[in-house]
């Protein structure tokens, strides 16, 4: 049985699978955000999957994708009504977990979507310690909040940095933030 079927068999019956895509042999499965920890435990402990190694955690900002899809000229005056008809906008952020099964040397991407108004995600540091810094980095760069993370602080930028630099609406040149060191207090 190939990986796709095994993952489907494992996650499908529990209703833990939203979508599954494949790109050049890389299998990617989207799961509901609220059940993330259940999914991870299942993927790690199910005998014929055994994804026991976490390669990386990364965030993606999909703002530009959605802006492209918007009609360029809006009908005047009916801006708010048009929005209501559309319903809630699609979740802006994605968090992607790159998993690896050491025994089978198979890789799987687990994906969750995170809406801008609810940026809280369950931390997987309780399962893999390796998620520690990557999650901190995702918080640093996108503002995603990982619930249950032991030390959720900025990692690469300094603590007082006011923005999230890898978001698509943050300019490449920065906004002129300067670091003012405060000694002592």
């Amino acid at each position: 049985m190939d990986l796709r079927e095994r993952v489907e068999k494992c996650l499908g019956p529990e209703g833990l699978m939203v979508a599954m895509t494949e790109c050049r042999g890389d299998l990617s499965v989207e799961v509901p955000k609220t059940r993330l920890l259940d999914v991870m435990h299942l993927l790690k402990d199910t005998p014929d999957l055994e994804f026991d190694f976490l390669s990386d955690v990364l965030g993606v900002d999909n703002l530009a994708f959605y802006e492209k899809q918007k009609p360029k000229k809006k009908p005047e005056g009916e801006d708010t009504e048009a929005k209501k008809e559309k319903g809630p906008s699609p979740p802006r952020f994605e968090v992607i977990y790159l998993l690896l099964s050491l025994k089978r040397t198979e890789r799987l991407q687990v994906k969750i979507r995170v809406a801008e108004d609810d940026m809280e995600v369950d931390s997987v540091t309780s399962i893999w310690k390796a998620a520690n810094w990557p999650e901190r980095e995702a918080f640093d760069m996108f503002g995603l909040r990982f619930k249950g993370h032991p030390n959720l602080k900025r990692l690469l930028m300094w603590d007082e940095f006011p923005a999230y630099p890898l978001r698509k609406d943050y300019p490449l040149e920065g906004r002129g933030e300067e670091r003012h060191l405060v000694y002592g207090e």
């Binding site: 050049r24 890389d26 390669s55």
Partner: peptide, 30 residues
């Protein structure tokens, strides 16, 4: 599309995650 590709660098697994939106620039590189 999006792919993750890794190789054994002197230090260990060095991987690149690249997502493309079809343009001439990467949408996200991790």
């Amino acid at each position: 599309g999006e792919v993750y590709s890794a190789l054994e660098s002197p230090n260990g697994e060095l991987g690149f995650f690249v997502r493309s939106d079809g343009s001439n620039k990467a949408y996200r590189i991790k």
